[in-house]
Simulated scan of single mutants.
Amino acid sequence: MTTGATIDLASKFAAFSDHWRPRFAAQLNGQDLRLVKVQGLFPWHSHADAEEMFLVWRGVFRVEFRDRIETLHPGQFIVVPRGVEHRTGADEEAEVLIFEPSEVINTGDAEVSEFTAPQGQTI
């Protein structure tokens, strides 16, 4: 992560291939910009103290709430309010930018599992 330098998203996404393991691309004002590749379904969870913003770079990405499903395409984003249970998914691989506070664990209040990303992985 280099501040004050241009970041090329295509090359950053090309640098890794695993799913559900966010990489830290930048930090600003206590927030992380995390890049993640997704495919399949992520566990249900919530974040009591933080909103999350998901911005689709490539592919089709879903945010599922208990009462509805939002489907996002490249260039679209959604903000999940704090405390709202949700899960994310993609039938085919998608690339997504996540904006959230630096201290947020990606699996929120769900039990630690293979989906829980190691903290501090940069790209």
Rank of each mutant, 00 (worst) to 15 (best):
residue 118 P to K: 12
residue 91 D to M: 06
residue 50 A to H: 03
residue 73 H to W: 08
residue 14 A to F: 10
residue 123 I to V: 14
residue 33 L to T: 15
residue 103 E to K: 02
residue 62 R to N: 15
residue 102 S to E: 06
residue 68 R to P: 10
residue 21 R to L: 07
residue 84 V to W: 04
residue 38 V to T: 15
residue 91 D to R: 11
residue 48 A to N: 07
residue 39 Q to G: 09
residue 117 A to E: 14
residue 121 Q to A: 05
residue 85 E to V: 13
residue 119 Q to K: 01
residue 9 L to R: 13
residue 22 P to Y: 09
residue 47 H to L: 00
residue 18 D to W: 03
residue 51 E to N: 10
residue 37 K to Y: 04
residue 88 T to D: 05
residue 58 R to E: 15
residue 21 R to P: 04
residue 72 L to T: 12
residue 69 I to R: 15
residue 85 E to R: 15
residue 84 V to Q: 12
residue 12 K to F: 05
residue 19 H to N: 13
residue 122 T to H: 10
residue 94 A to H: 04
residue 27 Q to V: 08
residue 12 K to C: 12
residue 32 D to M: 12
residue 81 P to E: 13
residue 27 Q to P: 01
residue 102 S to C: 10
residue 74 P to I: 10
residue 119 Q to T: 02
residue 100 E to H: 02
residue 73 H to K: 14
residue 89 G to Y: 07
residue 3 T to L: 14
residue 109 D to R: 00
residue 45 H to W: 04
residue 107 T to A: 01
residue 47 H to F: 01
residue 22 P to D: 09
residue 39 Q to V: 11
residue 97 L to V: 07
residue 2 T to A: 14
residue 88 T to L: 04
residue 3 T to Q: 14
residue 100 E to Y: 03
residue 81 P to D: 12
residue 27 Q to M: 06
residue 54 F to Q: 05
residue 25 A to Q: 07
residue 50 A to N: 05
residue 46 S to V: 02
residue 56 V to W: 08
residue 120 G to I: 00
residue 41 L to E: 15
residue 76 Q to F: 06
residue 97 L to M: 15
residue 66 R to F: 03
residue 95 E to C: 10
residue 24 F to I: 09
residue 123 I to E: 10
residue 56 V to R: 08
residue 25 A to F: 15
residue 77 F to Q: 08
residue 47 H to R: 00
residue 103 E to N: 04
residue 17 S to Y: 06
residue 32 D to C: 13
residue 46 S to I: 01
residue 98 I to F: 03
residue 6 T to W: 11
residue 55 L to E: 07
residue 93 E to D: 08
residue 98 I to P: 05
residue 105 I to F: 01
